[in-house]
Simulated scan of single mutants.
Amino acid sequence: MSDNFSSAHPQRLLDQVRDVLRVKHYSYQTEKSYLLWIRRYIHFHHRRNSRNIGGSEINAFLTYLAVEEKVAASTQNQALSALLFLYREVLHLELDLNLDAVRAKRSRYLPTVLTPEEVKAVILHLSGVHRLVVQLLYGSGLRLAEAQQLRVKDVDFAQRQLAIRNSKGMESRLTMLPETLVEPLQEHLLWVKRQHQQDLEQGYGSVYLPFALERKYPRADREWIWQFVFPAERRSQDPDSGITRRHWVHESGLQRAIKQAVQQAGITKRVSCHTFRHSFATHLLQNGYDIRTVQELLGHKDVKTTMIYTHVLQKGARAIKSPLDT
C-alpha cells in the first residue's frame, strides 16, 4: 500500500482509505466525513509526500481550522480522528504526535427539547411516512440513521419492541415500540410489501445487506424480512455494486417536512430530527424513569452522555425560582 500523497494519484489514496473504512465496518456517514477531512488535509499541504508530513503538519492543520475556520471543538476532533485513521490504519505510520495546536473552544452544549404538547403539534402537521418516522424518533428514541436503516425483521409487534442493530459504535440494543404505532406501522408495511412485490415482478427487489451477507446468503437481499421499513420512493443505482435497488428514505425530504411542520405549529425553537430523540430522553426522566434505563434505551455507552438531559431538567422554574417571582 503506497504511503504517499502522490500528486498524480490523490484519488488512489482516498480509495484506499474508503476500502479500509469498509473492511472495519465504519458507518457511511463516518466514511463521508473522514474522506472529506483527509481530502482537505491533502490539499492544505499541497499534496506533499506523506514521508515528510507528520505531527507538526497535523498541528498546523488543526490550528488553521480553529483560528481561520473557527470550527467547533467537536468538528476539530473529528478532523483529528480522520487523520489518525489515515496514518495508523491506512498508511501504517506511527506518529510522534504532541498536540500543541490551537484548540477550538468547547462550548457547553444543551440540546433543544420540545414539550410534549409541542411534539404533538409538530406531528399533527406531518403526514404519511414523515409522520411515522418522527413518531418513532420520539416514541422509541431512535437516531435518524437508525430509523432509516430499520428492517422488517427488526420490528417485533408481538413483544412491542424494536431491535436496533449495528448502530453508532457498532452497538445493538432493544427499545420499545409504542402501542399507538402498532396499527399504523402494520398498515404501512402492507403498502411496502406490495411495492416490494412489484419490484420483484419487474426484476428488481434487491436490498443492500451489510458485512458481506450477500455472499453468505445469496438470495437474502430479495427476501421480505431484509427490506427497509422506510424504503426510498424511487429505485437508484448502488454506486458500489452497480445494482439498481431501493435504498432507505432520504433525510432531506424528512428535514424539509419537519421544518415546515414546526413553522405551521408556531414553534420558535430550532428543531431538527435529533430534537425528537432529545425530547424522548428528557420526557422519560421527567416521568420518573431512572437514568440507567434511559441510557440503555438510547444506546449510550457512558452514562455521562445521558447526564446532559438532567441538566436540561434543572433549567428554569423547575429548579430555581426567579427573584422577580418572589
Results as ranks from 00 to 15, higher is better:
132 L>G: 11
169 G>L: 00
134 V>F: 02
156 D>V: 03
151 R>D: 03
127 S>H: 14
151 R>T: 13
146 E>R: 12
152 V>L: 03
118 E>H: 06
124 L>M: 12
150 L>R: 09
130 H>L: 01
120 K>Q: 15
142 L>A: 08
128 G>Q: 01
121 A>K: 14
146 E>V: 04
136 L>W: 06
129 V>I: 13
159 Q>V: 07
163 A>W: 14
156 D>A: 06
152 V>G: 00
139 G>W: 00
159 Q>E: 13
131 R>L: 00
166 N>I: 08
147 A>P: 10
154 D>T: 10
142 L>E: 02
133 V>C: 05
162 L>Y: 07
126 L>T: 00
161 Q>Y: 07
147 A>Y: 12
162 L>T: 09
133 V>I: 15
129 V>K: 09
135 Q>C: 11
152 V>P: 02
124 L>S: 15
150 L>P: 03
168 K>H: 12
120 K>Y: 09
154 D>A: 13
142 L>N: 05
154 D>Q: 13
150 L>F: 07
134 V>H: 01
120 K>M: 14
119 V>K: 00
142 L>P: 08
122 V>S: 10
145 A>L: 14
160 R>N: 14
126 L>R: 00
169 G>C: 01
156 D>L: 05
136 L>F: 05
160 R>K: 13
132 L>C: 12
144 L>M: 10
141 G>M: 13
146 E>W: 09
160 R>E: 14
146 E>I: 05
160 R>C: 14
